[in-house]
Design a protein around this nucleic acid. Structure first.
Lengths: 238, 238
DNA sequence: ACCTGAACACCGTTCAAGT
DNA sequence: ACCTGAACACCGTTCAAGT
């Protein structure tokens, strides 16, 4: 029995175990903390041992992106396909929101995925299903193609927002002074700040990331739906 | 006269000159090639001299992002404001496309901008003008707020596409085999490949980045316009 | 005030050596 | 077959020393 636990404490290193530990490390301390030496330490092994299971660090980085992609695929598969193919929209919407929930647990994943030279093969299946949903809903192959480009990485739940952290705790007095200063140069943004700051849980939505994501997603999905309805055709049809 | 040229050859180092050289280096060889030592060499100086004009490398990175932001602002300022405030849409569209042209010359900029903890102050003015355009066109502050989130980094010309390089030169025989293999697992993507590969300059748009960007942008702008027209209100109006 | 050379701590990675 | 220790080339950065 004691031998059993001793074995467990130093389970044999495998590519799988290395990648799982790498994901965990990136989740907890960020990708910049994911060094070969730190990862080795996490696994109770010297950094150089990792090279027995992985070609180099680039392979670790693409590997942990793959792990997250698999998680996304698993989460998205939970969403049942539409009973009526005309219901492509709510199903696609639900799938994308499910993908987003996975990404929220791996904040480093978007940047890392974008840094990859080639798209992970697993994602081809994901986009294939999206295109299938759309075509089932009445999209031409042509329109479906452009629709996928329009969704872009948002199809995976990427937020694509620049204002990540607006909620530093700021002294209210300092804030009112900043607002006054802003009002001169940036009148519209100043108006906006008044809403967002003074009314963080307001009916206006404040800066609720989830709300903003769904709002933007719906603008796109509804827009695409309208184009399908109108029988959109490529403009340069010579 | 000889003294003059000698002076020019080793002009005094300034923060401006350091940043301009850094942008140039990143443009030509990528951000990963932008090291303190390489930048120093480019300026004919030891790496350590840079610290006299810049606090550290992080300041260089945020500095070159600022340079690009200034370029964007300059390009966007060339677009005249609408004669009739109701014409917010074509003007906003033109501004965003102008911003994109700048970014295309600094491919490293999007990732670098997203990596910044705080948004560059210069961009606040940019977004202020966007919000102003929208409000002039009849957007409520509330709708304009969500509209800015929906545009996100696309307002700066970010493409947000995952499939960056689909145009590796591939042997046509290998390609047809790949297509056959794909058709089983990924029928819709296989159909798509047929269009894109066999017809790269087709009326369907192939994978023309410029076309796809404008298509996606129009889906969003048109969608936002419809919401304005319909007098959109925040759903949770208790 | 600005630049330099040596040095330090930290990377990814190679390689010969261990078991 | 898998792991280790020493070493190498390359980072960003510090510091004392030059002018």
């Amino acid at each position: 029995v004691g031998l059993e636990t001793a074995k467990k404490a130093r389970a044999p290193l495998t590519r799988e175990r290395v990648l799982r530990a790498a994901v965990e490390l990136a989740d907890e301390r960020g990708v910049e903390a994911l060094t070969m030496r730190a990862l080795g330490q996490e696994l109770g092994v010297e950094a150089m041992s990792l090279y027995n299971h992985v070609k180099n660090k680039a392979e670790i980085l693409s590997g942990i992106v793959d792990v997250v992609c698999e998680e996304i695929l698993a989460a998205v598969d939970q969403i049942p396909p539409p009973d009526d193919p005309a219901d492509w929209k709510p199903v696609l919407r639900a799938r994308i929101l499910a993908a987003r929930q996975v990404l929220l647990q791996h904040r480093w994943a978007p940047a890392q995925l974008e840094a990859l030279r080639d798209i992970p093969p697993s994602l081809i299946g994901y986009y294939d299903e999206i295109l299938g949903l759309m075509r089932g809903g009445g999209f031409s192959l042509d329109l479906g193609h452009h629709a996928m480009h329009a969704l872009g990485s948002r199809a995976l739940g990427f937020a694509q927002e620049l204002f990540v952290e607006a909620d530093h705790d700021i002294d209210p007095d300092v804030m009112t002074m900043m607002l006054k200063q802003m009002a001169g140069r940036y009148p519209h943004m100043a108006d906006l700040m008044k809403i967002v700051v003074h009314d963080p849980e307001s009916t206006l939505g404040g800066c609720d990331d989830q709300f903003e994501f769904e709002f933007g997603l719906d603008v796109i999905l509804d827009g695409l739906d309208r184009l399908r309805e109108a029988g959109w055709q490529s403009p340069a049809h010579t």
